[in-house]
Simulated assay, not measured.
Amino acid sequence: MTVVSAPQGAGRVSSEQPRRRRFSVAPYLLLVPAIVVLLVALGYPLVWQFITSTQKFGLAQQFGKPPEFVGLSNYTQLFSDPQTWTVVARSIAFCLVNAVITVVVGVLVALLMNAVGTIARLVLQIAMLLAWAMPVIAAMTVWIWVFDWRRGIANWALTQLGLDFTNHNWLEQPLSFYFVATVIVVWMSVPFVVFSVYAGLTQISDEVMEAAALDGASAVQRFVAIVLPMIRPVLMIVTLLQVIWDLRVFAQIKMLQDAGAPTASTDLLGTYIYRLGVGSSDFAMASALSIFVLLLTIALSFFYVMHLMKEDQ
């Protein structure tokens, strides 16, 4: 009688518990120097600004007079002024409109860059780099000349097309002022979105796109079902950054105001803080508004940050 022996390990339980990750302190220790630098470089000015916002701090305090503690009265005075809320609403609208236009235009240019040949792509990349690398002051000098009401090329070109734009002052009315500001801000911001989205587009497999095309998917369907989900993390990040940057825009608005625009009806948060602090020497009120801008930035970006953290889990 032949005895068949059971295979070795047959009675052993095949399923094994996954190994638990061992907690390591080393990565957190490596982050400590960077966190300390950030706390010193960013935390100290933030704390100083908050303390200043609770004091009476004007021109006299700049020359050594001790500041007087006033608590939250600066905030009460600031937000009881209707002009403050007008500037806040104007800034949020300008920020959101510019962020949306910048991202949409940037995605379209990135798609174009991904679709054209090597020579055309190189030309687009050089053009984007030149626009991105141009200093703000130099770029604003050119744009102010373009929209100059006496000898600007914008008025000349529109007049040549049959429209009466002779001596039209683009900066005189708030609506046309913000149109000019939007053109400038979007022109300066689009290259960052283009290069970021184009980098995401290069990671999409050509085989997947070809398979979808063979299955009968149109260009719009391929973009919605394949391209958009693939580049969504990039779009989330660039949109978040654009919202933050456009909310804090200052140099473009200030230089357009200095070119002849009325300040009261064209102020955004950046220029309003400058006018309160440097213009009126009320540094405490400017600090209070700066703290509010920080909280507003956190509130506007909270959804995006929470969404990014949820995707990383």
Rank of each mutant, 00 (worst) to 15 (best):
L130Q: 03
L29T: 06
V183L: 15
L268T: 09
F23T: 06
A251E: 06
L59G: 08
F50E: 02
P191N: 11
V293S: 05
A219T: 11
I35T: 14
V193T: 14
L29V: 12
I298G: 08
A213T: 14
Q313F: 06
S281W: 08
W85Y: 06
T76D: 13
P45F: 05
Y178K: 05
L228C: 02
V185T: 13
A99G: 02
R232D: 11
V305D: 00
A288T: 01
E68C: 08
V107R: 00
N74P: 01
I101A: 13
L171T: 12
Y75F: 15
Q160W: 09
L171V: 14
V234D: 01
G162E: 04
S176I: 07
L96I: 13
L296R: 00
V88P: 02
G71K: 10
G106D: 10
V234W: 01
R21M: 11
A288L: 01
I137C: 03
I144C: 02
Q252N: 09
L78D: 00
L112C: 12
F23Y: 12
M1R: 02
F50R: 14
R20S: 15
Q61S: 11
H307R: 15
F250S: 04
A199Q: 12
Y178M: 09
D164F: 02
I253W: 02
V142Y: 05
L308A: 05
R248Q: 15
W149F: 14
L269E: 00
Q125W: 08
L122C: 06
Q49C: 10
P191R: 06
F165Y: 11
R151D: 15
S176M: 09
R22A: 13
